[in-house]
């Protein structure tokens, strides 16, 4: 049986059904990332697990015990908040030892554990400071330290990097991933940033409107999205999505029968710009972004659909040029009118 199990979890805010029956099994030691657009219920789901919101339906099992209605203080989980939520009146050391103190742990043991955590997190020099006297990144590490000192059953993170600047974010991301490898602790990590999801997760849970869209390893989501939402949510720039009609008779060679009103999805790296006549679609270039190592060409088809092409060679096309777009046949995803996948790219299997 799994370590943490969510069984048909529901949450209502008044009449608003914020979480719509979520089922999920998490194994011991896994790093799970909840990802989805803002307002989709990631934080709510995490807070339900934490016991900070009451669960309105379903069951929550941790390590074989039903904790659906257990208070947070009895769940043995640790949470790192977006705002860090450090105790402003306590020093770093006190912040980190608070939980152990409440648990009645021996003073010497507490000291050892705090010092050990401080060492891991490079906080030894700051143990006697209050949070006010720390930088954002240091506060962040204290918040993490507060969690690891306790050695909880599960770590919960709610967008812990969103208050950091870009450079620090990348650095901390790497550190958290490293910490997870070292401690091997079960972790649930919430973010709206798909890069964080892709780089850190063992498995990613994509949420939308309070329901799970797809669960899978990062590359699995990238290669085999189960629906248009996941296909477009994962990957930057996002997957091109063209109505099947755009392709005319060419589409018929892809799947049969063709889903009426469906779409064909193709990632930008599988679209190339060629001379007129060689590709499947004519388009007018809107603009070109040259990033050095690669170029992004934005072009619009006669029907008004914008297509992005990512090329690793420097492109010589310019805005206003008419070009032909060539789609790699093995890398096309087909979705039906409801947005569900009909067939994923064949290229993955090879």
């Amino acid at each position: 049986m799994s370590f943490l199990q969510l069984k048909n979890i529901e949450k209502f805010f008044g009449d608003h059904r914020a979480i719509k029956g979520v089922d999920l099994s998490i194994e011991k030691g896994e790093f799970i990332v909840f990802v989805g657009p803002s307002g989709c219920g990631k934080s709510t789901l995490l807070r339900l697990i934490a016991g900070l919101e009451t669960i309105d339906g379903g069951n929550l099992l941790l390590d074989g015990k039903d904790i659906t209605h257990a208070p947070s203080s009895k769940r043995d989980l640790a949470m790192v908040f977006q705002s860090y939520a450090l105790y402003p009146h306590m020093t770093v050391a006190e912040n980190m030892s608070f939980a152990l103190k409440l648990a009645g742990e021996d003073k010497k043991v507490i000291k050892e554990k705090v010092e050990h955590a401080a060492e891991i997190l490079n906080l030894t020099r700051y143990l006697e400071r209050t949070p006010k006297a720390l930088s954002g990144g240091q506060r962040q590490r204290v918040a993490i330290g507060r969690a690891i000192v306790r050695a909880p059953k599960v770590f919960l993170f709610d967008e812990p990097l969103s208050n950091l600047d870009a450079a620090l974010r990348v650095q901390t991301r790497v550190e958290i991933a490293k910490l997870h490898r070292e401690l091997g602790a079960t972790t649930i990590y919430v973010t709206h940033d798909q890069v964080e999801a892709m780089t850190m997760a063992d498995r990613v849970v994509v949420l939308r409107d309070g329901a799970i869209e797809q669960v899978g390893r990062p590359l699995e989501l990238y290669d085999r999205p189960q629906n248009r939402f996941v296909a477009q949510f994962i990957g930057m720039p996002q997957m091109n999505m063209l109505p099947i009609g755009e392709f005319g008779s060419y589409a018929e060679s892809l799947v049969r029968p063709l889903p009426v009103g469906g779409h064909i999805g193709v990632r930008p790296e599988h679209v190339t710009i060629t001379n007129a006549g060689e590709g499947q679609l004519l388009a007018t270039v809107d603009f070109v972004e040259s990033l050095g190592a690669e170029s992004l060409v934005y072009a619009t088809t006669p029907h008004g659909v914008q297509v992005v092409s990512k090329q690793s060679v420097r492109s010589s096309v310019r805005a206003g040029d008419t070009v032909s777009l060539k789609f790699e046949q093995d890398w096309l995803h087909v979705f039906d009118a409801d947005g569900q996948v009909v067939s994923n790219a064949k290229g993955v299997a090879k």
């Binding site: 934490a50 016991g51 900070l52 208070p71 947070s72 203080s73 009895k74 989980l77 640790a78 949470m79 908040f81 977006q82 705002s83 939520a85 450090l86 105790y87 402003p88 608070f98 939980a99 409440l102 648990a103 507060r146 306790r150």
Partner: peptide
């Protein structure tokens, strides 16, 4: 959130 943190800490 500070109170929630305390609750998570077992308070």
């Amino acid at each position: 959130e500070i109170l929630e943190a305390a609750r998570m800490d077992g308070a």
